[in-house]
């Protein structure tokens, strides 16, 4: 994980967590400010949809406020928060599934076809490196979303949120070995998805 100021602040928030646990509203507010970007991005990768991600992350933080007092160990805050976030995401997904006529997978497939990589080979000539980077980022978000929820959760938590396998196991309430094996199959599936979409270093023309 990149060492930004925000990350450093997140690493050293024990005092803040302790105060928040005692019901200090200011401390709770600060915690939200600190963690919002991470949790939002976690949800965004889970849904690949801004609105749903906003909904889920806000619900997660409301839940955090409500249950702050039940947090036993400040050192476990991170995995505790991600547990809340994943529950919030799952609940939101359930709600959406029952509300929408189209299933998410179908919608996703449709979206994938629209921005098919094959038709956009002209991207090679695009001089705007940043734009290309943003497009690549978006493309990878799409690929991530094609993973099954089980695998996606683990991949996001490991690769983007930097949780240890121990923490992932704690969040998902599974064994460490199961978490590792899910990640293994997640990466394998991801490889298949990239191949199917013909995403290689050559086709992207982008040095990693």
């Amino acid at each position: 994980m990149a060492e930004t100021l925000l990350d450093i602040a997140m690493m050293h928030s024990d005092a803040l967590i302790a105060r928040a646990r005692e019901g200090d509203k200011n401390a709770q507010g600060k915690l939200v400010q600190l963690w919002y970007k991470r949790i939002y991005n976690f949800c965004y990768k889970f849904f690949y949809d801004h609105d749903q991600a906003m909904e889920a992350s806000q619900k997660a933080f409301i839940s955090m406020h409500r249950h702050m007092a039940s947090l036993q160990d400040a050192g476990r805050f991170k995995s505790w928060l991600y547990t809340i976030a994943i529950n919030s995401c799952r609940e939101e997904a359930r709600k959406q599934k029952s509300q929408r006529l189209l299933s998410l997978n179908e919608m996703q497939a449709a979206r994938g076809r629209d921005t098919g990589w094959e038709q956009s080979t002209h991207r090679h000539d695009n001089p705007e490196r940043q734009l290309r980077q943003a497009e690549l980022s978006d493309l990878l978000h799409q690929c991530l979303h094609e993973l099954s929820a089980e695998q996606r959760e683990v991949v996001i938590m490991k690769e983007y949120e930097g949780l240890k396998f121990r923490e992932i196991a704690e969040v998902l309430n599974i064994s460490e070995n199961t978490a590792k094996s899910r990640l293994y199959y997640g990466l394998e599936t991801m490889k298949g998805i990239l191949e199917r979409r013909n995403i290689t270093k050559e086709s992207i023309g982008y040095e990693l």
Partner: peptide
Amino acid sequence: AEWQTMRQWLRQAQDQEVIAPPVLVE
């Protein structure tokens, strides 16, 4: 090496910028 490459690919998915909404404490 393949796994390492896959990790590099995955790292291309960047964080979305977002502004935390005001704290809603009920």
